[in-house]
Protein backbone atom coordinates (compact mmCIF):
# COMPACT_ATOMS: atom_id res chain seq x y z
CA UNK A 1 0.00 0.00 0.00
CA UNK A 2 1.10 3.55 -0.63
CA UNK A 3 2.20 5.91 2.08
CA UNK A 4 -0.12 8.21 4.00
CA UNK A 5 -0.08 11.84 2.99
CA UNK A 6 -1.61 14.63 5.06
CA UNK A 7 -4.86 15.47 3.36
CA UNK A 8 -8.01 17.09 4.64
CA UNK A 9 -10.18 14.35 3.18
CA UNK A 10 -8.39 11.69 5.24
CA UNK A 11 -9.92 10.93 8.65
CA UNK A 12 -7.70 10.46 11.69
CA UNK A 13 -8.44 7.45 13.89
CA UNK A 14 -9.99 8.13 17.30
CA UNK A 15 -10.88 5.50 19.86
CA UNK A 16 -14.18 5.55 21.73
CA UNK A 17 -13.41 6.07 25.40
CA UNK A 18 -17.03 6.01 26.50
CA UNK A 19 -20.55 5.96 25.02
CA UNK A 20 -22.88 7.89 27.34
CA UNK A 21 -26.58 7.31 26.81
CA UNK A 22 -28.43 10.60 26.99
CA UNK A 23 -31.85 9.46 25.75
CA UNK A 24 -33.28 6.47 23.94
CA UNK A 25 -31.86 7.66 20.63
CA UNK A 26 -29.08 10.07 21.58
CA UNK A 27 -25.60 9.35 22.89
CA UNK A 28 -22.58 11.41 23.78
CA UNK A 29 -19.49 9.80 22.32
CA UNK A 30 -16.22 10.52 24.11
CA UNK A 31 -13.14 10.06 21.95
CA UNK A 32 -9.40 9.89 22.45
CA UNK A 33 -6.77 10.08 19.77
CA UNK A 34 -5.24 6.67 19.01
CA UNK A 35 -1.72 7.98 18.77
CA UNK A 36 -1.72 9.53 22.23
CA UNK A 37 -1.67 13.05 20.85
CA UNK A 38 -2.32 15.99 23.14
CA UNK A 39 -5.92 16.42 22.32
CA UNK A 40 -8.23 18.04 19.87
CA UNK A 41 -8.24 21.83 20.14
CA UNK A 42 -11.40 23.42 18.81
CA UNK A 43 -13.64 26.46 19.19
CA UNK A 44 -17.25 26.32 20.39
CA UNK A 45 -19.61 25.94 17.46
CA UNK A 46 -17.24 23.98 15.26
CA UNK A 47 -17.96 20.52 13.92
CA UNK A 48 -16.15 17.42 12.74
CA UNK A 49 -16.83 15.05 9.88
CA UNK A 50 -17.16 11.77 11.75
CA UNK A 51 -16.49 8.55 9.82
CA UNK A 52 -17.84 5.11 10.65
CA UNK A 53 -15.71 2.44 9.00
CA UNK A 54 -17.22 1.38 5.70
CA UNK A 55 -20.54 3.13 6.34
CA UNK A 56 -20.01 6.83 5.77
CA UNK A 57 -19.40 10.21 7.25
CA UNK A 58 -21.61 12.83 8.86
CA UNK A 59 -21.00 16.32 10.25
CA UNK A 60 -21.47 16.42 14.02
CA UNK A 61 -20.99 19.45 16.25
CA UNK A 62 -18.42 19.16 19.02
CA UNK A 63 -20.20 19.19 22.37
CA UNK A 64 -17.32 19.07 24.86
CA UNK A 65 -15.35 21.68 26.77
CA UNK A 66 -12.77 23.57 24.70
CA UNK A 67 -10.68 23.86 27.85
CA UNK A 68 -10.22 20.09 28.09
CA UNK A 69 -9.42 19.03 24.54
CA UNK A 70 -7.91 15.71 25.57
CA UNK A 71 -11.32 14.05 25.35
CA UNK A 72 -13.25 14.91 22.23
CA UNK A 73 -17.01 14.78 22.69
CA UNK A 74 -19.84 14.59 20.21
CA UNK A 75 -23.53 14.23 20.99
CA UNK A 76 -25.33 12.43 18.19
CA UNK A 77 -28.86 11.33 17.53
CA UNK A 78 -29.77 8.26 15.52
CA UNK A 79 -31.47 9.71 12.44
CA UNK A 80 -29.91 8.03 9.40
CA UNK A 81 -27.68 5.22 8.19
CA UNK A 82 -24.42 6.59 9.53
CA UNK A 83 -25.71 7.79 12.89
CA UNK A 84 -27.57 4.50 13.41
CA UNK A 85 -24.30 2.63 12.84
CA UNK A 86 -22.41 5.15 14.96
CA UNK A 87 -24.62 4.64 17.98
CA UNK A 88 -24.15 0.87 17.83
CA UNK A 89 -20.42 1.24 18.43
CA UNK A 90 -18.88 0.43 21.78
CA UNK A 91 -16.12 1.66 23.99
CA UNK A 92 -12.82 0.64 22.35
CA UNK A 93 -14.08 0.89 18.79
CA UNK A 94 -12.32 3.25 16.43
CA UNK A 95 -13.87 5.84 14.18
CA UNK A 96 -12.46 8.51 11.90
CA UNK A 97 -12.47 12.24 12.54
CA UNK A 98 -11.79 15.14 10.16
CA UNK A 99 -11.86 18.64 11.52
CA UNK A 100 -12.47 20.91 13.27
CA UNK A 101 -14.27 22.90 10.64
CA UNK A 102 -16.48 25.93 10.54
CA UNK A 103 -17.07 29.21 12.32
CA UNK A 104 -17.42 29.66 16.07
CA UNK A 105 -19.80 31.19 18.59
CA UNK A 106 -18.74 34.71 19.65
CA UNK A 107 -17.61 33.72 23.13
CA UNK A 108 -14.87 36.34 23.56
CA UNK A 109 -16.83 39.02 21.73
CA UNK A 110 -19.74 38.70 24.18
CA UNK A 111 -17.66 39.68 27.20
CA UNK A 112 -19.37 42.41 29.21
CA UNK A 113 -22.84 41.53 27.96
CA UNK A 114 -25.80 39.54 29.18
CA UNK A 115 -25.84 36.30 27.22
CA UNK A 116 -28.80 34.11 26.39
CA UNK A 117 -28.49 30.62 24.93
CA UNK A 118 -31.66 29.29 23.33
CA UNK A 119 -31.45 25.58 22.58
CA UNK A 120 -34.02 23.36 20.92
CA UNK A 121 -33.69 19.58 21.08
CA UNK A 122 -30.23 18.39 20.11
CA UNK A 123 -29.37 22.06 19.52
CA UNK A 124 -28.15 22.10 23.10
CA UNK A 125 -25.13 20.01 22.05
CA UNK A 126 -23.31 22.71 20.02
CA UNK A 127 -24.15 25.25 22.73
CA UNK A 128 -22.79 23.26 25.64
CA UNK A 129 -19.14 24.21 24.86
CA UNK A 130 -20.17 27.87 25.05
CA UNK A 131 -21.83 27.40 28.41
CA UNK A 132 -18.69 25.72 29.73
CA UNK A 133 -16.62 28.70 28.56
CA UNK A 134 -19.02 31.18 30.11
CA UNK A 135 -18.99 29.35 33.43
CA UNK A 136 -15.21 29.20 33.55
CA UNK A 137 -15.01 32.96 32.96
CA UNK A 138 -18.16 33.81 34.90
CA UNK A 139 -17.07 37.24 36.05
CA UNK A 140 -16.62 38.47 32.47
CA UNK A 141 -20.31 38.28 31.67
CA UNK A 142 -23.52 39.82 32.99
CA UNK A 143 -26.54 37.54 33.18
CA UNK A 144 -26.12 34.08 31.72
CA UNK A 145 -29.44 32.52 30.74
CA UNK A 146 -30.09 29.11 29.21
CA UNK A 147 -33.51 28.43 27.66
CA UNK A 148 -33.84 24.82 26.60
CA UNK A 149 -36.78 23.20 24.87
CA UNK A 150 -37.16 19.48 24.22
CA UNK A 151 -39.84 17.09 23.07
CA UNK A 152 -40.60 15.37 26.35
CA UNK A 153 -38.82 15.12 29.71
CA UNK A 154 -37.31 11.81 28.57
CA UNK A 155 -35.64 13.60 25.66
CA UNK A 156 -33.73 16.07 27.80
CA UNK A 157 -29.97 15.91 27.24
CA UNK A 158 -27.30 16.21 29.92
CA UNK A 159 -29.87 15.67 32.70
CA UNK A 160 -27.30 15.63 35.52
CA UNK A 161 -25.51 18.70 34.25
CA UNK A 162 -28.81 20.51 33.74
CA UNK A 163 -29.61 19.99 37.39
CA UNK A 164 -26.19 21.29 38.38
CA UNK A 165 -26.55 24.34 36.20
CA UNK A 166 -30.04 25.02 37.52
CA UNK A 167 -28.69 24.78 41.03
CA UNK A 168 -26.19 27.58 40.53
CA UNK A 169 -27.17 31.05 41.73
CA UNK A 170 -25.26 32.77 38.96
CA UNK A 171 -27.05 31.03 36.07
CA UNK A 172 -30.66 31.21 35.02
CA UNK A 173 -31.81 27.94 33.48
CA UNK A 174 -35.31 27.39 32.17
CA UNK A 175 -36.32 24.09 30.68
CA UNK A 176 -39.55 23.45 28.78
CA UNK A 177 -40.97 20.43 26.98
CA UNK A 178 -43.55 20.12 24.21
CA UNK A 179 -45.60 17.59 26.14
CA UNK A 180 -45.37 15.70 29.41
CA UNK A 181 -47.18 13.08 31.42
CA UNK A 182 -48.41 13.52 34.98
CA UNK A 183 -45.17 13.49 36.98
CA UNK A 184 -43.38 16.35 35.24
CA UNK A 185 -43.36 19.41 37.45
CA UNK A 186 -41.63 21.68 34.96
CA UNK A 187 -42.78 23.91 32.14
CA UNK A 188 -44.76 22.59 29.20
CA UNK A 189 -45.00 24.52 25.98
CA UNK A 190 -42.82 25.84 23.22
CA UNK A 191 -39.43 27.36 24.02
CA UNK A 192 -40.32 30.77 22.59
CA UNK A 193 -42.79 31.25 25.44
CA UNK A 194 -39.86 31.35 27.88
CA UNK A 195 -38.52 34.56 26.41
CA UNK A 196 -41.22 36.87 27.78
CA UNK A 197 -40.48 35.37 31.20
CA UNK A 198 -36.86 36.49 31.43
CA UNK A 199 -35.44 39.89 32.27
CA UNK A 200 -32.45 41.16 30.35
CA UNK A 201 -31.11 44.35 28.83
CA UNK A 202 -31.91 44.00 25.12
CA UNK A 203 -29.31 46.56 24.13
CA UNK A 204 -26.48 44.71 25.87
CA UNK A 205 -27.41 41.12 25.26
CA UNK A 206 -25.92 38.56 22.91
CA UNK A 207 -28.18 35.68 21.99
CA UNK A 208 -27.04 32.34 20.56
CA UNK A 209 -29.68 30.09 19.12
CA UNK A 210 -29.42 26.48 17.99
CA UNK A 211 -32.23 24.14 17.07
CA UNK A 212 -34.64 23.23 14.27
CA UNK A 213 -34.96 26.05 11.75
CA UNK A 214 -38.64 26.61 12.54
CA UNK A 215 -37.86 27.01 16.22
CA UNK A 216 -35.05 29.46 15.40
CA UNK A 217 -37.33 31.56 13.21
CA UNK A 218 -39.95 32.02 15.91
CA UNK A 219 -37.32 32.62 18.56
CA UNK A 220 -35.90 35.39 16.38
CA UNK A 221 -39.33 37.01 16.19
CA UNK A 222 -39.69 37.02 19.97
CA UNK A 223 -36.21 38.46 20.44
CA UNK A 224 -36.82 41.21 17.93
CA UNK A 225 -40.04 42.16 19.70
CA UNK A 226 -37.94 42.59 22.84
CA UNK A 227 -35.59 44.95 21.02
CA UNK A 228 -32.54 42.73 20.59
CA UNK A 229 -30.53 43.92 17.59
CA UNK A 230 -29.91 41.57 14.68
CA UNK A 231 -26.16 41.95 14.93
CA UNK A 232 -26.27 40.58 18.48
CA UNK A 233 -28.08 37.38 17.51
CA UNK A 234 -26.21 34.30 16.31
CA UNK A 235 -27.67 31.12 14.86
CA UNK A 236 -26.21 27.75 13.91
CA UNK A 237 -27.34 26.49 10.52
CA UNK A 238 -27.31 23.02 9.08
CA UNK A 239 -27.06 21.85 5.48
CA UNK A 240 -26.06 18.67 3.66
CA UNK A 241 -22.29 18.25 3.73
CA UNK A 242 -20.04 15.86 1.91
CA UNK A 243 -16.57 17.35 2.36
CA UNK A 244 -16.65 19.99 5.12
CA UNK A 245 -13.86 21.87 3.36
CA UNK A 246 -15.69 24.02 0.80
CA UNK A 247 -15.03 21.82 -2.23
CA UNK A 248 -18.15 19.72 -2.78
CA UNK A 249 -20.74 22.48 -3.08
CA UNK A 250 -23.46 20.73 -1.06
CA UNK A 251 -23.70 22.99 1.96
CA UNK A 252 -24.51 26.19 0.08
CA UNK A 253 -26.98 28.54 1.73
CA UNK A 254 -27.38 31.35 -0.75
CA UNK A 255 -23.83 32.58 -1.32
CA UNK A 256 -22.66 31.16 2.01
CA UNK A 257 -21.00 27.82 2.60
CA UNK A 258 -22.23 26.43 5.91
CA UNK A 259 -18.96 24.50 6.36
CA UNK A 260 -16.81 27.63 6.06
CA UNK A 261 -18.92 30.76 6.58
CA UNK A 262 -20.98 28.84 9.14
CA UNK A 263 -22.34 26.87 10.85
CA UNK A 264 -22.50 29.85 13.19
CA UNK A 265 -23.83 32.95 11.46
CA UNK A 266 -24.60 36.41 12.71
CA UNK A 267 -28.31 36.83 12.01
CA UNK A 268 -27.73 40.26 10.48
CA UNK A 269 -25.74 38.63 7.66
CA UNK A 270 -28.33 36.00 6.76
CA UNK A 271 -31.63 37.59 7.67
CA UNK A 272 -32.82 37.79 4.06
CA UNK A 273 -31.84 34.21 3.36
CA UNK A 274 -33.60 32.85 6.44
CA UNK A 275 -36.83 34.47 5.35
CA UNK A 276 -36.84 32.61 2.04
CA UNK A 277 -37.97 29.07 1.36
CA UNK A 278 -35.95 26.28 -0.18
CA UNK A 279 -32.68 28.19 -0.25
Amino acid sequence: MDSIITDSMIPKPFRIHRMLKETHDTYTIELESTNGADGFPFSSGQFNMVYVFGVGEVPISISGDPKTPKILKHTARSVGTVTKALLKLKSGDVLGVRGPFGSRWPVEESVGNDVILVAGGIGLAPLRPVLYSFISHRDKYGKIILLYGARTPEDLLYKKELEQWRGRFDLEVKVIVDSATGDWRGNVGVVTTLIPRIQFDPLHTVVMICGPEVMMRYTLKELQSRGVKNENIFVSMERNMKCGICLCGHCQFGPKFVCKDGPVFCYEHIKELLGKREI
Partner: peptide, 18 residues
Protein backbone atom coordinates in the same frame (compact mmCIF):
# COMPACT_ATOMS: atom_id res chain seq x y z
CA UNK B 1 -10.81 7.02 -5.46
CA UNK B 2 -9.64 9.21 -2.60
CA UNK B 3 -8.26 6.51 -0.35
CA UNK B 4 -8.43 2.89 0.72
CA UNK B 5 -8.77 1.85 4.32
CA UNK B 6 -8.34 -1.43 6.12
CA UNK B 7 -8.89 -2.57 9.66
CA UNK B 8 -5.67 -2.95 11.56
CA UNK B 9 -5.73 -4.42 15.03
CA UNK B 10 -8.11 -2.22 16.96
CA UNK B 11 -7.67 0.68 14.60
CA UNK B 12 -7.51 1.31 10.89
CA UNK B 13 -4.95 2.26 8.32
CA UNK B 14 -5.49 4.51 5.35
CA UNK B 15 -3.55 4.52 2.12
CA UNK B 16 -3.94 7.22 -0.46
CA UNK B 17 -3.61 6.87 -4.16
CA UNK B 18 -0.37 8.19 -5.43
Amino acid sequence: RLWKIKRNGGSFQIATEN
